[in-house]
């Protein structure tokens, strides 16, 4: 892509290492889709191909979502500040896979049976939370462009705080889908717990935008203040008690809609009701 002079001035040049990383991300992120196509053409999707596609695209959505959220911790660990600039790419691949997952449900699984789908969204908690997660990702993807970011100014960061709710809903969606005793969602729950622990930065940690190097913002803060401010935190979900605890540390962050929730321990069903009605 040839950048015009104007945009070239705004976006600093990208290092060779970052270019390679981006290429690697493109390849890695397209592999699951390539595999599905390969399996589909070679009768390899098993006895229940529709379920296979659904599980596969859902799994990869979660993986890329968690990878997106891991960018900031990785940057802090490595000190490679440029790393933040792969976040939008990862975020958009997450959205790409959730779209495949959603499209598979609408087209192949339900075959445009709109009444049945609407009923499922309203009645089936696992579909309700899955759909809520998709709805939350939608504005993030739509406002992922540089122009939208400039246009929304500070609100962009606030909007993109939504990304923190998505893995929680995604993991919940997975637990409520499987039969009792099936532990496949467990690794994602752990990653979700790890990825959402309090850490530096405010809105800038979200996965759908590119930080501009050298601009003032939470990422530019000195380490001490960075550690003091922290994002929302989802601690754990207990299946035996049908409960999960999450809390939002009261910090010096800009006013957020969720700020009142300094600590909430809630039954997951009531959380869903709240999310569904909001």
């Amino acid at each position: 892509m040839v950048l015009s002079e104007g945009s070239a001035r705004r976006v600093p040049a990208v290092s060779v290492a970052l270019q390679r990383l981006r290429l690697a991300i493109w390849i890695v992120c397209l592999l699951p889709l390539a595999r599905l196509i390969w399996l589909g053409l070679n009768n390899g999707l098993g006895a229940n191909p529709i379920e296979f596609i659904s599980r596969s695209t859902g799994t990869w959505t979660l993986v890329f979502l968690l990878a997106t959220l891991c960018v900031t911790p990785a940057r802090q660990l490595t000190g490679w500040t440029e790393l933040t600039r792969v976040r939008r790419l990862l975020g958009l691949f997450t959205f790409f896979y959730v779209c495949l997952h959603f499209a598979n449900w609408i087209v192949i699984d339900q075959f445009f049976d709109w009444p049945a789908m609407l009923q499922d969204i309203a009645k089936r908690p696992f579909i309700t939370v899955g759909f809520a997660a998709f709805l939350l990702l939608l504005p993030l993807a739509l406002t992922s462009t540089d122009a939208a970011r400039r246009h929304l100014k500070r609100n962009w960061g606030r909007l993109h705080m939504l990304v923190y709710a998505v893995p929680v809903l995604g993991v919940l969606h997975y637990w409520w889908l499987v039969k009792k005793g099936v532990q496949t969602p467990l690794p994602y729950t752990w990653c979700c717990w790890g990825g959402e622990r309090p850490r530096g930065g405010g809105a800038a940690k979200t996965g759908f935008g590119r930080r501009k190097v050298g601009r003032a913002g939470p990422e530019g803060l000195p380490p001490k203040r960075r550690a003091a401010s922290s994002g929302p935190c989802v601690r754990s979900y207990s299946r035996t008690r049908d409960q999960f605890s999450c809390w939002m540390p009261a910090t010096n962050q800009p006013a957020l809609p969720l700020r009142g929730l300094t600590k909430c321990q809630t039954s997951s069903s009531s959380l869903v009701t709240t999310l569904a009605s909001s």
Binding site: A47, N48, I50, E51, I108, Q110, F111, D113, A116, Q119, D120, K123, R124, P125, F126, W176, L177
Partner: peptide
């Protein structure tokens, strides 16, 4: 409680 039993997918078929 978590899903409908009104329809089923016959293994090997496309539509429910």
């Amino acid at each position: 409680p978590r899903w409908s039993q009104a329809k089923e997918r016959r293994i090997g078929e496309f539509r429910k």
